[in-house]
């Protein structure tokens, strides 16, 4: 146990945890949106994120991005990366819904069928990206896709450096960008759901689908919308991940998706602000746990905390709100 280290550098570990948790939170929104409206846990959402990281990878390779580009170019690469990743992830999420879930809904399939379909889709994507993509793109991207199932590196867009120091807490440029970008995306989504007409339609379907239809809400359109929105958030997470960690692999989504799902449950699944809180909380807990014990313990700590929190608050920290008190 390294209490002295944790307490002595509490600020530093908190900052590290927040920037880690911000990415969890962005991915968690996809789980929470779909669950809030459909009561479906879209386990394939982790692969929506994975597709986003590959979209960034392919984009940067096609543009011939080198390590440490000048600032102007770096911003351009990041913005283009955001657009491409959001489009790829949003499109993937929408395709999943149209091709897999919608036909099941039309047949009134029981919830278990959706769950198995989601898990199956997730495996299909992982294998597809591990086996087929390298062969398809092998010629175009020899160095990157040379060996399947390996970690694929990406160019460093921004060199991590300390921006400023408060006490003994150093905050880096990358941490700041990740945190601000993630919170900004979430604020945008929160505004969209709570303040716009389409957002009101989403909340209506979440709270009472049949009555929403009686008010003229097209439920199918709302469902497409939430998949796309969740996908866009996962795409943003994919860009931030690529910028911060500089690698991806076909199985990248598995652990991250599981963590993000945990964050969603921790905050109260179906609750957008809960996903933010759950993500940040989980990030902090992991970093604290890794400091107290050892870094290979962080997953153990994360899930023990999840179980303990759910024992006392079974609906998560904030409870469910998108579909509150659904009849």
């Amino acid at each position: 146990m390294h209490f002295d280290e944790l307490i002595g550098h509490l600020g530093q570990h908190t900052v590290d945890g927040l920037s880690k948790g911000a990415i969890y939170a962005l991915i968690a929104l996809g789980y929470t949106l779909v669950y809030g409206v459909l009561r479906l846990i879209n386990f394939a959402h982790s692969e929506v994120f994975m597709v986003g990281t590959f979209a960034v990878l392919i984009l940067w390779n096609q543009l011939g991005v080198e390590n440490n580009p000048p600032v102007g170019q770096a911003i351009l690469f990041l913005v283009l990366g955001l657009v491409v990743a959001a489009a790829a992830s949003g499109g993937t999420a929408l395709a999943l819904e149209r091709v897999a879930y919608r036909p099941l809904r039309r047949k009134n399939a029981p919830p278990l069928i959706f769950l198995i379909t989601a898990i199956g889709l997730s495996l299909v994507f992982v294998e597809l990206f591990g086996q087929v993509l390298p062969k398809l793109l092998g010629g175009a991207l020899p160095d990157v896709f040379g060996r399947p199932r390996q970690i694929v590196g990406m160019p460093t867009i921004i060199q991590q450096e300390t921006l400023f120091t408060i006490g003994n807490t150093a905050i880096t440029n990358i941490q700041l960008i990740v945190f601000i970008a993630a919170v900004a995306m979430m604020a945008l989504l929160d505004w969209f759901i709570n303040r716009t007409r389409y957002g009101r339609g989403v909340r209506a379907v979440a709270q009472n689908p049949e009555t929403a239809a009686l008010m003229g809400v097209n439920q199918e359109r709302v469902i497409m919308l939430i998949f796309v929105l969740g996908g866009i958030m996962a795409g943003a997470a994919a860009l931030l991940w690529s910028m911060r960690f500089g690698f991806t692999q076909n199985s990248i989504g598995f652990v991250l998706g599981l963590k993000a799902f945990t964050a969603a449950v921790l905050g109260g699944i179906g609750n957008l602000r809960g996903a933010l809180l759950g993500g940040l909380f989980l990030g902090i807990v992991e970093v604290y746990g890794a400091t107290l014990f050892a870094s290979n313990w962080e997953d153990v700590i994360a899930f023990v905390v999840l179980i303990v929190v759910l024992m006392f608050r079974p609906t998560g920290l904030l409870g469910e709100s998108l579909g509150r008190a659904r009849a």
Partner: peptide, 14 residues
């Protein structure tokens, strides 16, 4: 055509 359904079905969170 608009219906006020049985049991009122207010959106409780709005």
């Amino acid at each position: 055509l608009c219906q006020s359904p049985e049991g009122r079905q207010i959106f409780p969170g709005m």
